[in-house]
Design a protein around this nucleic acid. Structure first.
Lengths: 352, 352
DNA sequence: ATGAAAGCGCTAACAG
DNA sequence: CTGTTAGCGCTTTCAT
């Protein structure tokens, strides 16, 4: 193994000089700097991570806590993880993957063993059990998601409230007066994930402002559950002309159901999604949607953390502005509004 | 920060004794061991990862190289990553996440900086550029997937050849004589991923043995591509009565298309998938399938690596036996075989 | 602009 | 069964 001492000997300088060339923490004459660089390349030297961590109290590792749960859309989690890793590498950091399984204990482990310089926590719940430990930890943390109390943390998330409002505004602009919301499964609301509620708040506020009716129903992503939920929606609000879906797994079942009921999208009924762009774009009917900016979230999280580690204190919440992409699943409400043809007799979408 | 020295002082012993209690590498009297354990708990001591790594040349970290590509089914990657992380924790290891982005350079980095004790490489191609570097590395590696030359590595994968054979046997047993295979997109075959070819080899061998016709077509996962491919399949082999799909994203488009053409599954046509169990189980028609044992693969990979690190030399390939789960998308071929009703005129599945 | 030297916290001989 | 001690490879004062 090539050590710093080897490089120093090879370049005819002291170890500290090599170290300083690497860290750039003091000025080195151009000539020796070049000589040392050459030695480094020639010998194929790489600093020993452990030694460096021990001496400097900096591991250049960020810990990423992933949820173990599977009721959230996995590809988005993965995209965030990849974005975090890529952004981290761009700043000279590596990423340690932790599963939610260990829970708060993972925080103590990272803290106690100094195995990472900072933590990124995904799938944060409103009253997350990890937060107290994170607060009393030495290391900075960025939360992806918004807990009830954000004191002491930097949080990064999509502005789901604005996203909800954006959906309603878009549909209201198209003339829709009665909107149904197909939400995440009840379990997601129950465990206080926050984003679902925030979206709902935005939807409701905008609906009130625009004087359109809003009916919200949590929903599992199975064909059966979607059929049942949509059935009840049409019973309660027969004048529904648009759906907002916030549940990746419910997207296809919903589209299949509407098709099966002879309702054409967007001629008879509009559908807008709050979901991963990929899901919206590749659905059997490309969906107008507000995407979850996974890449951006991952990147922001890392950059905040790196800034903090570099001494630029900057706690605070980053809410990423929603972006609504029109893809053709939303259109003007039919005039006169067609009665929802919900039985087998109906043919394919005619709007008159 | 609490150090080993603090614990030693608190327990009234020497540092080495504490170290040995932790590692169990030499016998300690029950009384002092207990005393030390108590001190450790009381002080909340955790070994400093960097110091330990420096002194012992063991980081207790496994590096996991994930593909950055998105043409493979993401949830399976994620499931493997989670299984790896969980299994690693169970053996006292943490997992460092590396993206394929860095390519072979990542291998050199891990090797040179001694940031991990071993590597797990996912999405291995037949002639993977990382393998030469991995071979000359000090640290052991486990590949998830099978390269052309497995010399020097432990490889873990599903026995895709057996999986393919299993599908053909299942369908042949049901009386099918002409099977079509909807494969991964051409790009997956082109870059030499191996598993796709191995599945095909298994399908072909079994088909030859059972004297059933086999037509294989790579296919993108879009509705348009599936429609085009299936159309050509029926033109070339009108007597096709069963499909084997190995492409998660093509599953729903295929089912939708068959439905739209008035072909009932499994009455008119059988469908068997080689894909993630979750996809098969939650498809609009639950699919008979051979699942990808992601959990098992991740676990095996870690266990092999840990065994190797513990000195139990055990290089070799682990091919996990396929498991075909019957879910109702496969059935006996209709007698007499129905002509595929591929045009709009056809009603819903009647077999006469 | 460069060197010398003292650790960082832990492990593993080497002694007893 | 336990203690002493010499590093592991690097960073960072303190000198010059």
């Amino acid at each position: 193994m090539v050590t710093l001492a080897d490089v120093a000997r090879h370049a005819g300088v002291s170890a500290s000089t090599v170290s300083y060339v690497l860290s750039g923490k003091r000025s080195i004459s151009a000539s020796t700097r070049e000589r040392i660089r050459r030695s480094i390349d020639e010998l194929g030297y790489r600093p020993h991570a452990g030694a460096r961590a021990l001496a400097s109290s900096r591991t250049h590792i960020l810990a990423l806590m992933m949820p173990l749960r599977t009721d959230l859309y996995v590809p988005v989690m993965m995209e965030i993880a990849m974005a975090v890793t890529t952004a981290a590498r761009a700043h000279g950091y590596d990423v340690l993957l932790l599963t939610g399984e260990e829970g708060p204990e993972a925080v103590r482990r990272v803290e106690g063993s100094a195995i990472a310089d900072a933590m990124i926590v995904m799938d944060v719940e409103l009253d997350d059990p990890r937060l107290p430990f994170l607060r009393q930890a030495e290391r900075p943390a960025v939360l992806i998601g918004l807990p009830a109390d954000t004191t002491g943390f930097t949080c990064v998330d999509l502005d789901f409230e604005a996203a909800g409002a954006r959906c309603v505004d878009h549909l209201a602009d198209l003339g829709h007066r009665q909107i149904a919301v197909l939400g995440e499964p009840p379990a997601v609301y129950a465990r206080g994930t926050g984003f679902a509620e925030r979206t709902l708040a935005g939807l409701r506020a905008a609906a009130a402002g625009r004087r359109v009716g809003l009916l919200h129903r949590p929903c599992e992503g199975t064909h059966a559950a979607v059929a049942a939920t949509v059935g009840r929606v049409f019973e309660e609000r027969p004048s529904t002309t648009a759906f907002v879906v916030q549940n990746e797994t419910a997207v296809e079942p919903l589209l299949a159901l509407l098709r099966h009921q002879g309702l054409a999208v967007p001629e008879d009924i509009s559908v807008v999604a709050v979901c991963a762009a990929q899901v919206a774009a590749h659905a059997s009917v490309p969906l107008t949607s507000v995407g979850v900016p996974a890449q951006e979230m991952g990147r922001h999280a890392v950059e905040r953390l790196v800034a903090h580690l570099d001494g630029h204190e900057d706690t605070g919440t980053v809410l990423i502005a929603p972006d609504l992409t029109v893809r053709g699943s939303s259109g003007p409400v039919a005039v006169p509004a067609p009665p929802p043809g919900r039985t087998e007799r109906a043919g394919r979408g005619h709007s008159g």
